[in-house]
């Protein structure tokens, strides 16, 4: 599910898969539409990012979880109080 990754001094960050190509038709609204915004009923934005998992460092890709239910939880930060 995840690639084992050794700890190193570089700081790889997570990346999001690029969204679909921009629509060729003119948008009807003036606001710029973000193709990556997560919405219910829509495909979850794909990503690959470094992670800590059970004592090791790995890379996690959402695509690894295809065919499974996933609960994806964001939170403000480690060592916070809630």
């Amino acid at each position: 599910m995840a690639n084992q990754d050794s700890a190193s001094c570089d700081r790889p960050t997570g990346s999001v898969e690029s969204g679909p190509p921009p629509a060729t038709t003119e948008p009807t609204a003036k606001e710029e539409v973000s193709v990556m915004a997560a919405r219910v009923g829509q495909k979850a934005p794909g990503f690959t990012a470094p992670a800590y998992h059970k004592g090791g460092f790995t890379n996690v890709s959402l695509s690894d979880y295809a065919g499974k239910w996933v609960m994806l939880c964001f939170y403000p930060g480690d060592f916070t109080f809630v």
Binding site: M36, W69, M71, L72, F74, P76, G77
Partner: peptide, 23 residues
């Protein structure tokens, strides 16, 4: 990057909001 894609990014504090997604 993930927080922005999922609308959880809190720009002023540089943290994620408590976003929870059932996929």
């Amino acid at each position: 990057a993930l927080g922005r894609a999922y609308g959880c990014w809190e720009e002023n504090q540089g943290v994620e909001l408590r976003g929870r997604f059932i996929i």
